[in-house]
Simulated assay, not measured.
Amino acid sequence: MSARPDRSVEIKTRGELQSMRAAGVVLARAIEAGRAAAVPGSSTADVDAAVAAVIADAGARPNFLGYHGFPATICASVNDEVVHGIPRPDRVLRDGDLLSIDAGCIVDGWHADSAVSLHVGSPPEDEAGAAETDLILAAQVALWAGIAATRAGGRIGDISQAVETAVLRAAHEDGRRYGSVSGYGGHGIGSAMHMDPFVPNQGKRGKGVRIVDGMALAIEPMVTLGKSSTRELDDGWTVVTKDGARAAHVEHTVAVTDEGICVTTALDGGAARLARYDITPISLD
């Protein structure tokens, strides 16, 4: 077994991680339904309904709905909204909007949490559209770099540094300014949606809580096409960029064992994206 973790961190059995995998598979399919529903002319409430239907049909429960009073199954964040956007029937999506869908569900008491960012319809056919496409890709690369840095015996700072470095590298390679949002980030997950430890998107390798067998973490970069400063709207939920820049938010839940990791919210367990890092995920199915 790996070294003992911080006492505040929940350690799961193999069977409990398998339940988290079951929740993750349901969530992956639900988010795909949300993607399909996110078409020009639909509303963010329509996307919410599509995700909710898949979760309900699977016999699972949404974990966002009612969380501290949150009124929906998903967070639907559009354009300069970074996270926690509230779905509304009157928020009609337009061709080229940048939409982030963040959702979670519960199976047998165990949680999954995941997010994707995408263009509604087609990205704008101009430099702004190209920049937003690069932004989404940069966030995805940062997410998988963080996942690849997750291993029993490592530390949370390993993940944080991998995410931060990937964003900086993408900015250099793309010739763009990307902001890595601080103050928000990933988290432990298991019998509750948000648990210790906090997983920042900036940090130093070798620092922070030790990662051990039986932990599960939600890793979630938030990247902007400008400055990283944010503010919360008067609704008490929606977080937007201060400079009005577009933002991307991506997330996966990762189960950790001494034998390796499994991305519970990816249908293939993360195999396709982790191959570039020479990592083969373990099976929890």
Rank of each mutant, 00 (worst) to 15 (best):
S229K: 12
L267H: 11
G186P: 03
A192F: 11
V54T: 10
G154W: 02
S182T: 15
T73N: 02
Q18P: 03
A255Q: 02
I74A: 00
S122R: 15
L137V: 14
H194D: 11
A56F: 07
A218E: 08
A49G: 07
P124F: 09
R91L: 10
G179L: 05
L233T: 10
A148W: 01
P89N: 09
C75W: 00
V39I: 13
E173C: 10
S19G: 06
R276H: 12
A248L: 10
A60W: 02
G185I: 04
D46V: 09
L17E: 02
K242Y: 04
G190R: 03
G203S: 09
T264Q: 01
M215R: 05
D174P: 06
A28N: 03
N63A: 04
T133C: 11
H172S: 13
A53L: 09
H68G: 08
D134R: 15
I106D: 05
E127N: 09
A53S: 15
G179H: 01
S191P: 06
G85R: 00
D57F: 07
A103P: 00
V263K: 02
G206V: 10
I101D: 00
R231I: 08
I74D: 00
I86S: 00
D196F: 02
L225F: 07
C105F: 03
G59S: 09
G244I: 10
E16V: 03
S77D: 04
S283Y: 09
V54L: 04
S42R: 11
T133P: 05
A149M: 06
L137C: 07
S42F: 04
A255T: 06
V223F: 04
S100L: 05
P221Q: 09
A192Q: 14
G41C: 10
L143T: 07
E220T: 11
V256M: 08
L233M: 14
I11N: 08
R155L: 08
V51W: 02
P124R: 11
E132T: 13
A218Q: 10
D46S: 14
H252D: 07
V223G: 00
V39T: 14
L137R: 13
G157F: 03
T13E: 11
R273C: 08
S160H: 06
E220M: 09
G269R: 01
V199I: 15
T73V: 15
A58K: 08
L267I: 14
D113S: 14
A38L: 05
A272Y: 11
E251H: 04
T241N: 05
D235P: 03
E173D: 15
K204M: 14
P71W: 06
I86E: 00
N63Q: 10
D57N: 13
H252Q: 15
T165H: 12
N201D: 13
G66D: 08
S2I: 04
V39Q: 15
G146P: 11
A30H: 03
I31M: 05
C105H: 04
G34S: 12
A272Q: 13
V82M: 02
G175R: 09
R210G: 12
R94Y: 10
V263G: 01
Q161P: 05
A266Y: 09
G15S: 15
T265C: 02
D46P: 03
A148M: 09
I156E: 01
T44M: 04
S2T: 15
G190S: 12
I136K: 03
E125Q: 14
V26M: 08
G129T: 05
G85F: 00
T241V: 07
G183R: 06
A272H: 11
G121E: 06
T73L: 05
S228P: 11
M222R: 07
D126T: 12
I136S: 02
S19E: 12
V256S: 01
